[in-house]
Computed example of a mutant assay.
Amino acid sequence: MSPSMLTVGLDPALVDDAPSSRAAFPEIDAEVVRAGVAAERARLKELGFTVDACLLDHGGTAEAVYRAALSRKVYDIVMIGAGVRLDPALTHLFEVMVDTTRELAPGAKLCFNVSPSTTAEAVQRWRPERKPLA
């Protein structure tokens, strides 16, 4: 059975309209995010992963949407995107996501990309087994 993963990030449609996202990532727009996500999803499928995506807003419904996604099935890996983690305005959302993952998917490995085009690299640090730090 192929390893399952959930990729979680901001809805690309929101990237251009959010002042905090634009300030945190001035070089990245919605098209860059969409292209990076699509390419990485294809790469992960080539590597044998089944991939589901969870797109969030900046708050409001984000927690409920994330809880619903984690409740649908058991995931081996959850990747929380840089757009959530590295935007100072979304720190609380990131904290909620980590705690929710620990609650609803305690067996899932957490990994983090640094851009839309580094998701496969982040996942490969954990599969088939965790890579050493040194």
Rank of each mutant, 00 (worst) to 15 (best):
residue 72 R to F: 10
residue 62 A to K: 03
residue 59 G to N: 13
residue 45 K to T: 15
residue 83 G to D: 10
residue 92 H to P: 08
residue 95 E to P: 10
residue 110 L to T: 01
residue 64 A to T: 12
residue 108 A to D: 10
residue 55 L to A: 13
residue 92 H to F: 10
residue 51 V to W: 04
residue 108 A to R: 00
residue 37 V to A: 07
residue 38 A to I: 14
residue 40 E to R: 06
residue 120 A to V: 11
residue 99 D to L: 13
residue 81 G to R: 04
residue 63 E to M: 02
residue 119 T to G: 15
residue 65 V to R: 06
residue 39 A to M: 13
residue 99 D to W: 12
residue 63 E to F: 01
residue 37 V to W: 07
residue 45 K to H: 12
residue 99 D to V: 09
residue 89 A to R: 00
residue 86 L to G: 05
residue 66 Y to N: 06
residue 80 I to R: 12
residue 49 F to K: 05
residue 35 A to S: 09
residue 77 I to V: 15
residue 98 V to A: 11
residue 115 S to A: 08
residue 61 T to G: 15
residue 47 L to T: 00
residue 105 A to L: 08
residue 94 F to A: 02
residue 52 D to A: 14
residue 104 L to I: 09
residue 90 L to S: 00
residue 62 A to Y: 00
residue 107 G to I: 02
residue 84 V to A: 00
residue 53 A to L: 10
residue 72 R to D: 14
residue 51 V to R: 06
residue 80 I to M: 09
residue 43 R to K: 10
residue 43 R to S: 13
residue 75 Y to P: 12
residue 36 G to S: 04
residue 96 V to K: 08
residue 76 D to T: 07
residue 95 E to N: 08
residue 39 A to L: 13
residue 77 I to P: 15
residue 44 L to Y: 03
residue 88 P to M: 04
residue 74 V to Q: 14
residue 89 A to K: 05
residue 118 T to G: 08
residue 96 V to F: 01
residue 56 L to F: 01
residue 76 D to A: 08
residue 118 T to M: 09
residue 107 G to K: 06
residue 92 H to I: 08
residue 60 G to D: 01
residue 89 A to N: 03
residue 81 G to Q: 03
residue 51 V to M: 04
residue 77 I to T: 10
residue 86 L to R: 09
residue 74 V to F: 11
